[in-house]
Design a protein around this nucleic acid. Structure first.
Lengths: 251, 251
DNA sequence: CCCGTTCTCGTCAAGTTGACGATAATAGCT
DNA sequence: AGCTATTATCGTCAACTTGACGAGAACGGG
């Protein structure tokens, strides 16, 4: 459990790398879960992940490799970032386990997963987890809550909403991503003006989508911009009108 | 190095909790460093921190305790948040060490620290580190760069700029924090309008500061608001603050 | 060919930002 | 006291952004 280092021993702990993989499907924000086959929490759902191998693998690389295994997709196409590290002492009943958690945004996957670890992987809507109606293994409820909040925030000031869309998409598809992740309706006309007016957000392909009804929409691809200036703010995060800008101190 | 768990062994690695403690002093954004007394990187400067004790201490708690030891301040007064976890395999030449790094904003500390670990602690301007003119131990240059970028970003959309100020401060002091952290001049009149118009950012104490010259400024305390809506965005870059030599904490 | 639907462009009032003039209130100096 | 330099605070105005919403464009389906 400890390695010697010139008369001093360095304590060691178990470390896992877990993934919070979010997607938008069936009109809901969903997260990838696996059903645990071993104790503890056998039979419960948990985030995919695993112990950091004793090999000298970078944690970022380990997360990308796991993501590729679970989704069957090239991780260079997907958005993957570190979410947070969870180090509460009793989050694993066996022994102390610290989890480095990563957050991924993936588009609606066309085929079910193919990797070996992913045999038990399922997509599950996040809302029942946030509401406490579904309980996950360990402290993964909290991780899911953190992941969703990070995702909602990221849509405001980055172009990552497009990471939930396929490589080619319309403004309406992007708007529905925002509406589903934020859980609120957006004005289609103002949203269109906003995203098409943000330099580098959308690159028109020239093609037009055809669907059941309505005017065909222009098809776009993701642009090079990653940050949005200014941000697209969710309702409720706007200043309250009526407050006096210059308030007298004498009160 | 491994613990048995029903026929399977869980690999373990060494974990440290490090601190990136930022402050504004002498007109520059500075970070707390310690001079290493042991190998590796003996004599080099590094972020304060230590191996995660084998005790069942929460990593957040461990970071807060270390911060209190280094600064001598009550950690409940200070802003402390997790920055990132660094897990590159060869960042420590001895063996694999994963570092959970925390970010703290502290005001200009009036008195030197009293703890034992802090005897060698110094404040050092971040700019030479960002420029590559000063090299730290391990990958701590990168951590400092991440910490500064996080701090600059946090000033935009949170009220954490006030965490660099003493408990009572003026708008000018707050503006200088912004100017120093962002490295650009801000219009004093627009900044005043902006921060006094943000509900919950500043609470007037009724007192007025007296200083060398000029009209006395109203004195404020931090308000309850943590998020700024809308954000204060940095704009045109105009470098302002120079760098000062290494400054002992007991100044 | 009409109709419902969706996409896209315009318009307008309200609010915010950036540039900057003007006034207020102090210290230091003669 | 009067003057000046300095800093704080208040106002003004044009340019821009936002939210609400009208209106036309371009389809599929009856």
């Amino acid at each position: 459990m400890q390695a010697s280092d010139g008369g001093w021993t360095i304590p060691e702990v178990a470390v896992t790398v877990d993934l919070a993989v979010l997607t938008v499907r069936s009109g809901a924000l969903q997260i990838m879960l696996i059903r645990r086959g071993v104790q503890p929490f056998r039979g419960k759902y948990a985030l995919p992940g695993g112990f950091l191998a004793s090999t000298m693998e970078d944690t970022d690389t380990a997360a990308a490799r796991e993501l590729a295994e679970e989704t069957g997709l090239d991780p260079s196409d997907l958005h993957l970032e570190q979410l947070r590290t969870y180090g509460s002492p009793y989050r694993d009943p066996r022994q102390r386990v610290i989890t480095i958690c990563y957050l991924a945004f993936v588009p609606h996957l066309p085929s079910p997963t193919a990797g070996g670890d992913a045999l038990h992987a399922v997509w599950s809507p996040v809302q029942p987890i946030l509401d406490g109606d579904v309980r996950l293994a360990f402290d993964h409820d909290q991780i899911v809550a953190d992941a969703v909040e990070r995702a909602r925030s990221k849509l405001e000031y980055t172009t990552l909403g497009a990471a939930f869309c396929p490589s080619e998409f319309t403004v309406s598809e992007l708007r529905m991503v925002y509406e589903i992740v934020w859980g609120q309706r957006l004005d289609a006309r103002n949203f269109h003006r906003k995203v098409t007016g943000s330099p580098g957000f959308l690159v028109p392909t020239g093609a037009r989508s055809r669907q059941k009804g309505g005017r065909p929409a222009a098809v776009y691809r993701r642009g090079a911009a990653e940050l949005l200036h200014p941000a697209i703010l969710r309702a409720g995060s706007r200043p309250v009108a009526g407050t006096t800008p210059h308030d007298d101190m004498s009160t």
